[in-house]
Design a protein around this nucleic acid. Structure first.
Length: 259
DNA sequence: TTGTGTTTTATTGCCTCC
DNA sequence: GGAGGCAATAAAACACAA
């Protein structure tokens, strides 16, 4: 216990209680009782009048910091639900009802607002986190679906190769560079993009790669993204880091898109 | 019983508004 | 400039495991 601590501040009707050296309690300059003498648990002042009641100090002397009674808290909570700010009239009225100092009521509201704000932040965080998680989940499934479609396209393209060679067999000397059929143009563009992508990826595949191997390669990269993120969200890091750190795609998402 | 973490009450200092 | 609000903090009260 620090010595010379004022128990009520200047708003307490001029009747300051003062904890002096040796944990003695003083009122108006004279010692009232020793802290050891007031060891029983008692509520704060019952009524405002008690503040001036000599006997009250004999029996109901406040010691250090005392918790409010459940009834007092209930009434304060009800009042807070109605309006979380406290106008002077309401403060005085509540203080009278509860037998507390107006200052105590004000402090209770202040602390209650702080608690509410903390809770609200937690709720907001949970909400943001679940939105983020569902976005990541959507992102992952889109990537998987995309990889599946790419592999399927590659597979079908390979199947079409014999048709192209048949065309070459009938080489037209009048038209050595004929414009390919529209669907072939499309496939060529996609193949071009796929090969560019593969190079950037570090030669993941050569022309002889199978559909299955390719798909496994794609899936491996997707799994890589997921596990990295899981590590990040499990422990350490700042409070919001795992919420706002977007998962890094292994490839720019747009590279395989249609022209 | 005791050590430790959490909650509640209260203070302090700064800021804004009238 | 005073009143009131808020953030940061202290400290008492409380809860609970070992």
């Amino acid at each position: 216990m620090d010595s010379g601590r004022i128990f009520f501040d200047s708003s307490s009707n001029g009747n300051l209680l003062f904890l002096g050296n040796g944990d003695s309690i003083f009122r108006g300059g004279s010692r009232v009782m020793n802290m050891g003498e007031s060891s029983k648990r008692r509520p704060f002042f019952g009524t405002a009048e008690d503040l001036y009641d000599e006997e009250y100090y004999d029996e109901q002397l406040p010691e250090k910091k005392r918790r409010l009674t459940p009834d007092q808290v209930n009434l304060l909570e009800k009042s807070f639900e109605e309006e979380n700010k406290l106008e002077p009239e309401r403060k005085t009225e509540l203080a009278k009802k509860l037998g507390l100092q107006p200052r105590q009521v004000a402090i209770w509201f202040q602390n209650r607002r702080a608690r509410w704000k903390t809770k609200q932040l937690e709720r907001d965080y949970d909400h943001l986190k679940s939105s983020y998680d569902s976005l990541v989940s959507n992102y992952d499934s889109i990537i998987k679906e995309n990889n599946k479609l790419k592999a399927e396209l590659l597979f079908l393209t390979e199947k079409l190769q014999p048709k192209e060679s048949t065309q070459e067999e009938g080489f037209d000397i009048q038209n050595p560079n004929p414009t390919p059929a529209p669907y072939l143009q499309l496939i060529m563009k996609v193949e071009d993009r796929l090969s560019t992508g593969r190079q950037r990826r570090g030669q993941l595949l050569d022309s002889g790669d199978s559909y299955l191997e390719y798909q496994q390669g794609c899936m491996a990269s997707v799994e890589g993204v997921k596990s990295e993120e899981d590590e990040g969200s499990e422990e350490g890091g700042s409070y919001f880091s795992d919420v706002f750190a977007a998962p890094e795609p292994q490839e720019p998402v747009g590279w395989f898109m249609w022209p």
